[in-house]
């Protein structure tokens, strides 16, 4: 099908983008890579009056270091993320999860920032951003502000981005020390969204797990951490039994949805199994 008609604006700087959004009226939609938005528009499930296409905002693209953090431009494509040496070195979990996103063609267009701002609970990158304590740098008419990932994902397809705001870049703290990571994705066919997925980053110290960060994909309307499991793992021995015991609480406090692919209780079960597997792999077990 063909999208409904819309006005099209193509800014080249963040300032222009913010201005274009402000001038775009009530029904403006910001387009990053368009890999979710265009299908939705083709099915006429969305029909914005104005599209602000960030595709030519060069300053929003690329990865750089800034002290203890990596700064990933929101318009950096998935393919660029996967190939980026800085991400490989300091935030491998992002690359690993990104490799599982959709397919190679889609990863050529889809962007890191777009995936986060879209905030689909089945999307792979929000839980990774959450697990890594990323921060979203947002530009709006009032200037820039920084929103921690914990506050960024508000509800199903809803973020803390205010009207008129644009996600510009994502600051990801580098993992310091002996970290292992794993993105354990569970879906029915290669192309499909995650039914459940678990992002794990584990720091080992002297045969113990010093610290674990666990992000859960599609276990509720927003990406979640698994605090009970993280707590149980802190200081635990790096053994399969200890990991299995800790993983049993991975679904605590979650309220996942029921749909064609999985009902809620099965998702909670999967969260435990996948957490165990992700942590075990991340811990090198």
């Amino acid at each position: 099908m063909i999208p409904a008609p819309f006005e099209y604006v193509r800014p080249t700087t963040v300032e222009e983008a913010v201005q274009a959004v402000a001038e775009g009226g009530d029904d403006v939609k910001i387009m990053a890579g368009g890999q979710s938005l265009i299908p939705v528009m083709r099915l006429r499930l969305a029909a914005p009056e104005t599209i602000v296409d960030l595709g030519r905002v060069a300053e929003m693209r690329g990865v750089r270091e800034d002290g203890d953090a990596l700064v990933i431009g929101a318009m950096t494509t998935h393919a660029e993320v996967i190939a980026d040496p800085l991400i490989a070195q300091h935030a491998r979990l992002i690359a690993e999860a990104t490799e599982t996103v959709a397919d190679r063609q889609t990863r050529r267009r889809g962007t890191f920032g777009g995936a986060l701002a879209h905030a689909d609970p089945a999307g792979d990158l929000p839980s990774v951003a959450l697990a890594l304590d990323a921060e979203m740098v947002v530009a709006g008419p009032e200037g820039r502000r920084t929103v921690p990932a914990r506050e960024f994902f508000v509800d199903y397809l809803t973020t803390a981005l205010d009207e008129g705001e644009v996600l510009v870049e994502i600051r990801v703290p580098k993992l310091a020390g002996d970290w292992g990571v794993r993105y354990e994705k569970f879906n029915r066919v290669a192309q499909a969204w995650s039914i459940v997925a678990v992002a794990a980053a584990v720091r080992r110290e002297n045969g113990h797990i010093a610290e674990a960060r666990i992000g859960l994909t599609n276990m509720g309307p927003v990406p979640l951490r698994a605090p009970a499991t993280e707590a149980a793992l802190a200081g635990a021995s790096a053994s399969p039994d200890a990991v299995a015991a800790a993983a049993r609480s991975a679904a605590e406090g979650t309220s996942p949805s029921s749909d064609l692919n999985a009902q809620a209780d099965y998702r909670q079960h999967l969260a435990q199994v996948l957490t165990r597997r992700a942590v075990a792999t991340a811990a090198g077990l």
């Binding site: 990053a32 979710s36 996103v101 959709a102 889809g110 701002a117 397809l157 969204w193 064609l260």
Partner: peptide
């Protein structure tokens, strides 16, 4: 038979459809 995430069409919010969790409303 609840609609999957790919069919959040009824939602007045920007719905999510497509093969990927990529791009979209930024």
């Amino acid at each position: 038979t609840a609609k999957t995430n790919a069919q959040g069409a009824e939602s007045a919010q920007a719905p999510s459809t497509g093969t990927s969790s990529t791009g979209g409303a930024l």
